[in-house]
Design a binder for these strands. Structure first.
Lengths: 231, 231
DNA sequence: ATCTTTCGTTAATATATATCAATGAATTAT
DNA sequence: ATAATTCATTGATATATATTAACGAAAGAT
C-alpha cells in the first residue's frame, strides 16, 4: 500500500509516525480535533526562527528546508523534510520557540497539531513520550554526524555527504532531481556557492557524477562514499 | 545548602536532576538498587564511542569532556560535564551505543544507573520521560548554537564563545582555572592547537583577557561578547 | 515583448587557517 | 638526578576556501 493521507482523521491516517501509532483511539480523536491542514507555495515560510512554537508539523507532501536563519544571511541547512516526516522543533518541551526556520522548496501540504494537545497526550501516555525521545535522539545522532562533517571534512567530503544524504535520505533513488538551489546546497555544506559549484564541476570532470540542471546521477557511489570517509 | 552527594541513596541525594525529582519513592528506591559509584583518574576513559551504552552517568564531582572520538585523531569536544550533570548519550532510547567518548579532565566521581532501570522507570512515569525530553531538547538547542559557532564564525568568534562557555556554563566565576589543555581548547573550537594559541595571544595583547598558565581572566567581557556576536 | 532581477557559472585574487619546523618548559619515567 | 616524553609557544610557509567581478541564462515583472 502506498503511504498517503487524505483528510479522513488521524485515526485512518496511513502516515502515522511511530509515536502516534502508540496512541489510544481516544487520544487520536483528541489529536484530530486539534489539527489543521495547510498548503504552502514554493519559497513560503512555514515556521520562522524566534517565533513562538505553536504547532507540530506532519508533512503530507513536498520538500522543505530546516535552517538556522542567521542575521548575517549565512544560513546552515540542518536537514530537509519530506513526505511523512514529523517535525517538532527543539523548542518543544523546552523554551517553546522555533529555533530553526522552515521554508517550502516545493509546494508543501501538511497538517499541524496544536502544541497544547501534544503536551496533553505526552502527559497521559508514557509510551508516546518514550517514542518522541527515541526520535529526538536519533535526530541528535544525525546532527552529530553533520557537525563532524561540517567541521572536520574538506569541501569534497562535505559535498559527498550531501550527495549521499539526498540520494538515500531524501529522494531514495539514484538519478534524483534536487529541489535545492545551488545556494541551498552551499548552505547544506557550509561553503560558498561558488566553491560548491567548483567542487561539483570537479566531481563531474572526474566522472563521479553527472549533472543536468537539477538532476544529479551518482555514477560512482562507492568512490563518493570513500571520499566521504577519508577526507 | 551546598549541593553535594554522599552515598546515602537516591532518596536523599541532594543532586537529583529534574527528571529524578519527579520519581516516586518506590522508583527512587529502584534506581538506587541499580546504581554503582565509581572514581576515575585524570585521562581515564569513562565511556568509549561505539561501545554498548549500558549506564547513565551522574557526576558527583570533577570535570569531564564529551567528544567525538574520530579515527583520524581530530576530535570535536561537544561539551564538558561538571558536578551535578546527568549524562545520557544520544544512543539512549535509540541504538544503545555511545556516540561520544567521555574522558576525565580532573579526578571524577560519579554514579552510574543501569540503562534497563532507566527504561523501566521511563515506561512507568511519563512525567519523568517528559523531563528527559525537555533536557534533551535544551541540549539540542545548545548544540545548534555550537554548530553555527563552529561553522559560521571566524577563529576569534569561536574562541570568544569558548571563553564565555567556560566562564558561565562550567566554572561560573571570572578568573577561572581551566582543566582543558590547549589541545582540548582547540578541539572545542575546531581549530588547530597552534591557531588557538595565536588567537589567545592576540586576545592577551589587546587586553581582552589575562592568562597565567591555565588561569584565565576575562578583562573585557562585553567586548568578548561583541566579538562572539559580530564575527 | 522587453526590462529587471535572480540564478548558475567561471576565473582571478585575497585571506583565513592549517601545517611544518624548531625550541624551551614542564612532566613523567628510568 | 638524568633522560625521555609531552605540552606550550613562535615564526615561516603552504593551502584550502572565500571574495570579488564578470557574464550568460533563466525566470518574473511591467
Amino acid at each position: 500500500m502506498k503511504k498517503d493521507c487524505s483528510d479522513i482523521g488521524c485515526h485512518n491516517c496511513a502516515m502515522k509516525s511511530v509515536p502516534f501509532s502508540k496512541l489510544t483511539d481516544e487520544q487520536l480523536e483528541y489529536a484530530d480535533k486539534n489539527k489543521t491542514v495547510v498548503t504552502y507555495n514554493i519559497g513560503e515560510t512555514i515556521c520562522k526562527k524566534g517565533a513562538p512554537l505553536t504547532h507540530v508539523l506532519f508533512l503530507w507532501d513536498g520538500i522543505a528546508k530546516v535552517y538556522t536563519d542567521l542575521p548575517n544571511q549565512k544560513h546552515v541547512i540542518m536537514k530537509l523534510l519530506k513526505k511523512c516526516d514529523m517535525y517538532a522543533g527543539p523548542g518543544i518541551f523546552a523554551d517553546e520557540k522555533y529555533h530553526y526556520s522552515v521554508t517550502a522548496l516545493t509546494p508543501v501540504k501538511l497538517c499541524m497539531i496544536k502544541i497544547e494537545a501534544f503536551y496533553e497526550i505526552a502527559r497521559q501516555n508514557s509510551l508516546f513520550t518514550y517514542e518522541l525521545l527515541s526520535l529526538s535522539n536519533h535526530a541528535h545522532i544525525r546532527y552529530m554526524f553533520h557537525l563532524t562533517s561540517l567541521t572536520q571534512k574538506n569541501m569534497q567530503g562535505r559535498f559527498s555527504d550531501m550527495l549521499l544524504y539526498l540520494r538515500h535520505h531524501i529522494y531514495d533513488e539514484n538519478p534524483f532531481t534536487a529541489n535545492t538551489s545551488r545556494q541551498d546546497m552551499a548552505d547544506m555544506t557550509a561553503m560558498s556557492k561558488e566553491s560548491l559549484i567548483r567542487i561539483m564541476k570537479e566531481f563531474k570532470e572526474e566522472g563521479l557524477i553527472e549533472v543536468n540542471g537539477d538532476t544529479i546521477t551518482l555514477l560512482q557511489e562507492e568512490k563518493i562514499k570513500f571520499i566521504s570517509e577519508h577526507s
